[in-house]
Design a protein around this nucleic acid. Structure first.
Lengths: 214, 214
DNA sequence: GTCTATATTGAGATAGAC
DNA sequence: GTCTATCTCAATATAGAC
């Protein structure tokens, strides 16, 4: 388990492994019970130490949450940025974005769940204001691709691009609530199902009659 | 505001109006801050009374949550049941279900938000086990319609029906997080956008190539 | 139905020994 | 890096007067 440690160098890594371990445990518990309902004692128990000892690694319970959120958000936004920057056919770019979003399920499901569950509450506090920035940049990136696809004619234009974005974002991310790593489908398969449904629709024939909203 | 009160009868209604008022206030705060992060004092403040006085109306904070959840779930499940029982073309039934789900946005958004946010955590406690039953009945009702549509050939059969259900359920319900009553679109319009996208897809041409999952 | 006053518990966090 | 011991505060809930 210490394979990455270089012989001769006596530890003190820039980011302690123990920190990361504890952070991963905390993320899991935050995801399962909710941040507010989680006690520092539970986190300490999971790590096999006493609650007071946690404060050697972290300033506070909130600081743990902050690190989890920051780590997740920075990573995913950087991915989106790179994918959009690479450019290409809007349809392909959108597909790539969707796959990246779904692959967070396999990557760090606990952090994703915490993000989904706590975002709305946390974003109102100054300390977590960066969450809004990340969300807004993500929305700009995704919506930009949709809008480009509308201009070039590959996407339909009769639905608000921002609403399409929201539908997609919510559907993809909230799937962390039912996704199980040992389940029937991998994140990649789920992504492909979703792309298939999103692009071509559920109906077989032309069910162009939406039945209302004239 | 007391239009429903009959003259001559001196109050003592079966369900006190004051209870309902307080419950609505509690639901709003639970929705905004999360159940665990809400204090009984905040609820009392909103109602213009002191925290101790709440216990004249309710046994506990948890009892308030219980009433909110029960009220919401019973109502929506009864609706779904009736709609499915009425029968008809699966495509029309599905459309009706989707509209009903979205109309919860206009009806009782706070209760819906609390349901979405707290479901996963609460369902593990015996007191809230009925949440699972409600969710399962809902899934059976919706999935049944999708499967019938697959049999009769109006829906594509290359995507798992339960996954389709989950995608739909999540997308619709989580929209309570961004829906605003004073916003650009009504729940009915949002429902129609969603139905349009769901049934016919986002792509204009035949983008049958999903690009992977061979 | 609400208030005053308070009991009681459990939470996050700290100080210093080891 | 962890433990022992404890502080402090805030939260739910209660009892009884009005």
């Amino acid at each position: 388990m210490s394979a990455s440690r270089q012989p001769g160098k006596t530890a003190t890594p820039l980011v302690s492994e123990r920190r990361e371990e504890i952070l991963a445990l905390a993320a899991k518990i935050f995801a399962d019970k909710g941040y507010a309902s989680t006690t520092v004692r539970e986190i300490a128990d999971a790590a096999g130490i006493l609650s007071g000892s946690l404060y050697h690694h972290f300033d506070s319970k909130e600081a743990m949450l902050d690190e989890i959120m920051h780590g997740f958000l920075d990573h995913i936004v950087a991915q989106y940025r790179a994918t959009v920057a690479a450019g290409g056919d809007p349809l392909d770019v959108l597909r790539a974005l969707i796959r990246e979003a779904f692959s967070s399920l396999g990557g760090n499901p606990a952090a994703l769940a915490v993000m989904i569950n706590e975002f709305n509450f946390l974003v109102q506090f100054p300390r977590f204001a960066y969450l809004r920035e990340g969300a807004e940049e993500t929305e700009r990136l995704w919506s930009g691709v949709i809008e480009e696809g509308m201009r070039t004619g590959v996407f339909r234009t009769d639905i608000d691009a921002r609403m399409i974005y929201r539908f997609m974002r919510d559907t993809i991310w909230i799937s962390v609530r039912w996704y199980r790593p040992d389940g029937k489908y991998s994140p990649e398969e789920i992504a492909d199902f979703y792309v298939a449904m999103l692009l071509d629709g559920l109906a077989t024939g032309g069910s162009t009659d939406t039945g209302g909203a004239t």
